[in-house]
Computed example of a mutant assay.
Amino acid sequence: MAATIAFVSTSTPYDDDRHEYSRAALARLVLAHRARGLSETAGSLTVTRYDAYNGAGSRVSEATSLITLSERILISAVIYERERGSSWEDIGRYLDVTGPAAEERFAVAVEEWRTAFDVPYRLDETGRKRVPQLPTAAYDPRRVSRDLDLWAQVHLLLSDKHAVSGGLDPTGDEEPQPEPVWDEIDGRVQLHHLGTFLALLAGYTHHEPVDEGWDAVTKAVEAGGDEHAYAMAGVFESLDIRMTLDRDSALVFVLVANARSADLRLRINTLMDAFDRP
C-alpha cells in the first residue's frame, strides 16, 4: 500500500496581522487572554443562587478547572518571559527552583510555541481537518486585543481604552507605537441574516427602524452596487453603520462606528463574532 503524505499548510488567514507583532507581544497577548479566562471561570464560583441545582461534587470540579487554567497561565507566562529575553535562572528564581530545573520543566512548551510559527496547522488523524497549533490570541491578535481592551474597561472599570493593546509593541521596535483606535468595529454577516443582526443591534441602542423596517434595509443593501449607509439613532447612543455586499459570497461587510461606551462596544463586538460565520 502506498504511503499517504500529509501536507500541512504553513499559512493562515491572519498571517498579515500576526506578522505585525513581535513574538514577545503575541506571547504577552496569549497570557492576557488566558488570564481573562481564569478570571471569568473563577467569577462563576462566587454565585450561590443556583447551588441547589448543581450535582454532588460539581463545585470541586469547577475548582479543579481553575488549577488546570492556572497551570496553562504559568506556561504562558514562562513562554512570554523567554520571548522577552529572561533567562532560565530569572524564571527559576520565582519558582524556587534552579535555572536548569525550570528549563527541564518548560523547555518543551517553549519549543512547541516557537515551532508553531513555522507550522501553524497540523492535520488530524483523518488527514482532512486542520488543527491549529497556536493559541487563539496569537492567530488573530487584532481582534483579541480589541476584545480584551473592552473587557478591561467593563470588568476592571479602567478608564484606559487601550489597557491591553496599548502595552503591546506590534513591531518589536524600540520606538513607541501610536495607540490603536477601536472606534470602528467591523465584521461580516450573511445577507439573509442581516435583518436579524440589525434588529439585535437596534435593541442595544433602543432604536426604532423607519419605513418598512429591516427588510427594507436588507433589500437596499442587496440592490445597491456601492456602500449603503444607515444612521441608527438611539436613546443614549447613535451609530453610523456602513454595509457593502459581496455578491459572489452573499456576505455583507459591516462597519459600525461611533459606539462610545465600552459596554456597547463589547456587545457589538460579541454580536459581530456571532454572525461572522456561515
Rank of each mutant, 00 (worst) to 15 (best):
T136Y: 03
R122Y: 05
D149Q: 11
S65N: 13
E237K: 01
S44G: 08
D169G: 01
A2E: 12
H162D: 11
T98A: 07
L168F: 02
T48P: 00
I5M: 14
A223F: 00
E83Q: 12
I241M: 07
S58F: 15
R146W: 02
N269I: 01
A101Q: 10
E20Q: 15
E40Q: 11
L69M: 13
P141L: 12
A52K: 08
G167F: 00
E208L: 12
S165Q: 05
I91S: 10
V221A: 13
D226R: 03
A152P: 05
V181W: 06
G234M: 01
N258V: 00
V189S: 07
D17E: 15
R59E: 13
L26C: 15
V144R: 10
E222R: 13
F197K: 02
E89K: 11
A32V: 12
F275K: 04
G43P: 05
E103T: 00
D51Q: 04
L168P: 05
E237Y: 01
L26I: 09
I91H: 03
T41E: 11
H193E: 11
T171V: 02
R36H: 08
L168T: 00
A27E: 03
L255Q: 13
R18N: 15
L29Q: 14
S61F: 14
M272E: 01
S76W: 00
R105K: 06
A24S: 15
V97H: 03
L251T: 02
S61P: 00
L191H: 07
Y53M: 03
P135S: 14
G92W: 10
E212Q: 15
G127T: 05
T244M: 04
I268H: 00
D51K: 06
D215N: 10
F106I: 04
M243E: 01
T12W: 04
L157P: 00
P132V: 02
L74P: 07
E175I: 06
Q133L: 13
D140M: 04
A250C: 03
D169R: 04
A202Y: 08
E104Q: 03
I185Q: 10
E174D: 10
G99W: 04
L74C: 09
P141R: 05
D248S: 04
A52T: 06
D16F: 14
W151L: 13
V217C: 04
E83Y: 08
S159E: 12
R122K: 08
P132E: 07
A163V: 06
Y230S: 04
R114E: 12
A25W: 10
P170K: 01
W214E: 08
D169H: 07
T12S: 15
P132N: 07
A3N: 01
V110L: 08
V60P: 00
I73T: 05
A229Q: 07
R28H: 14
M1K: 05
R72D: 10
V221N: 11
T126Y: 02
L157D: 11
D96C: 03
V97T: 13
G187S: 06
E227S: 05
A199F: 10
D15G: 15
V60A: 11
E125M: 09
S249F: 03
Y230R: 09
S145C: 15
V235W: 01
L271A: 03
A32W: 09
L271V: 00
G213R: 12
R260M: 04
T126P: 06
V221E: 11
S58D: 13
D51R: 09
